[in-house]
């Protein structure tokens, strides 16, 4: 132990921008280091993209199956990263007192949440590149304006992220793990992702269309598959989910 330091106090918080950069980099590296997260957010969507493109389960009323599949898989990817992945990651950070320990540092909570959000968005960027790239390889032919599609992805991220934090901040980590995976599975099949809501009866459809997954999926299909205009209905639905989930998460989130 040849090194010595003078411990003379010199406390001062770093600029927020530096904290945000460091926190985002840390969160993002940890996401990529976690095998389950990588599987959930990167590998499974690609496998399902391949699988649903095969006319095995059901027929679609379209000759170009891949044009339906890619917007669905984008929805799945956003849900995986912003809801399931974020909920499970944050739940275990709460369990292992990571959030408690960070609460005793100069890192403001807003910067912590900001870092998590940016890490999820970075992950989604990789997802989009992979899912779309793979889609092009499978002869995907997108229509419409990509700008509303991107807006829907961001809105979906906020709504799903708020729901993920609400689950992670209120339930035990093990329960969060189970709930987040279960919801992921249920929304995959009943939330307008894998199976078009048109395959359901009108009564079920009237309810299911208001799920966040259905709204994001519907909006993306309208734009990317059918080249439609700005999808107002799905946008409003996602806004409402975000407006409920984020304040609820802020209100009930327990840090330890």
């Amino acid at each position: 132990m040849s090194t010595t330091l003078a411990f003379t106090p010199a406390p001062e918080a770093a600029p927020r921008s530096r904290m945000l950069l460091a926190q985002t980099a840390m969160e993002f590296r940890l996401l990529l280091r976690n095998g389950e997260q990588v599987g959930l957010t990167l590998l499974i969507p690609l496998l399902l993209e391949l699988f649903f493109n095969l006319p095995l389960l059901y027929s679609l009323d379209t000759p170009r199956r891949i044009d339906f599949v890619v917007p669905s898989i984008i929805t799945l990817a956003v849900m995986s990263a912003a809801f399931t992945g974020l909920a499970i990651g944050t739940g275990f950070e709460r369990k292992y007192a990571v959030l408690k320990r960070l609460g005793a540092t100069a890192l403001p909570r807003s910067v912590l949440v900001g870092g998590k959000t940016l890490a999820v968005l970075l992950l989604e960027l990789i997802q989009l590149v992979l899912v779309c790239g793979f889609g092009f390889a499978l002869a995907w032919h997108p229509h419409g304006d990509p700008a509303p599609a991107l807006l829907l992805v961001v809105l979906g991220t906020i709504a799903f992220g708020g729901l993920g934090l609400l689950v992670a901040g209120t339930l035990r980590a093990e329960i969060t793990l189970a709930v987040a995976n279960l919801v992921w599975l249920v929304l995959l099949f009943a939330g307008g992702i894998a199976i078009p809501l048109s395959k359901y009866g009108p009564a079920a459809r009237d309810v299911l269309q208001y799920l966040p997954s259905a709204a994001l999926s519907d909006g993306l299909h309208r734009v990317l598959q059918h080249g439609g205009d700005f999808p107002v209905g799905p946008t409003i639905t996602l806004l409402v989910w975000a407006a409920i989930a984020l304040p609820a998460a802020a209100r009930w989130f327990k840090w330890e």
């Binding site: 406390p11 840390m26 940890l30 280091r33 292992y96 990571v98 005793a104 890192l107």
Partner: peptide, 18 residues
């Protein structure tokens, strides 16, 4: 917060895989 350093009782309280 910046002026106070804290050592928790049980474990590090840091990201376990960092």
């Amino acid at each position: 917060r910046p002026r106070v350093g804290v050592m928790l009782q049980d474990g590090v309280g840091g990201y376990p895989s960092a």
